[in-house]
């Protein structure tokens, strides 16, 4: 499998713009499949960046020809978010472990109330004393 460090595709891994930039460079390299996108050597990867990357590469992602290499649980959690929101079958490899399908995670459910006049909650922290 061909492994491509994400740093070769874009200068940072935050914002949709960078996700688009990375995806357009990756498309040119998809003649050899499958491809591993190596996210392990970057300090920060935002969920928006991943979402845009996945959206732009959906035809390849959907056919399982892209694997994301991650090193920490937080990065896999973001992949789970994107998989849940986009209903995309994503695959990843943690460290040197086996390739596995990311478990899609739907956004949590939040309890919602409508109010007429907003009031501070008692447990809210106030200003510094």
């Amino acid at each position: 499998m061909k492994s491509i460090p994400i740093k070769q595709l874009c200068s940072t891994c935050v914002t949709r713009r960078r996700g688009q930039e990375a995806a357009s460079k990756l498309r040119g390299q998809m003649h050899v499949q499958p491809v591993e996108i190596d996210l392990s050597d970057v300090q920060m990867v935002s969920a928006s960046f991943l979402d845009e990357l996945v959206c732009q590469l959906m035809p390849y992602v959907g056919s399982g020809n892209i694997v994301f290499r991650v090193t920490d649980a937080d990065m896999e959690r973001k992949l789970q978010q994107v998989a849940g929101i986009r209903s995309a079958p994503l695959f990843c490899r943690s460290g040197s472990g086996d390739i596995h399908q990311v478990i899609p995670k739907s956004p949590p459910t939040y309890k919602l109330t409508y109010v007429i006049a907003k009031t501070p909650e008692h447990d809210e922290s106030g200003p510094p004393s």
Binding site: A47, P108, Y110, K111, L112, T113, Y114, V115, I116, A117, K118, E121, D123, E124
Partner: peptide
Amino acid sequence: EVANVNGSFVLATGDGYVKMNNRGMIEAG
């Protein structure tokens, strides 16, 4: 992400607001 670190937020736009407290409860008005 804010809920994940037990944070909270308030957002105003026009004459409306949305607020989430540190227990993940959302309020709007």
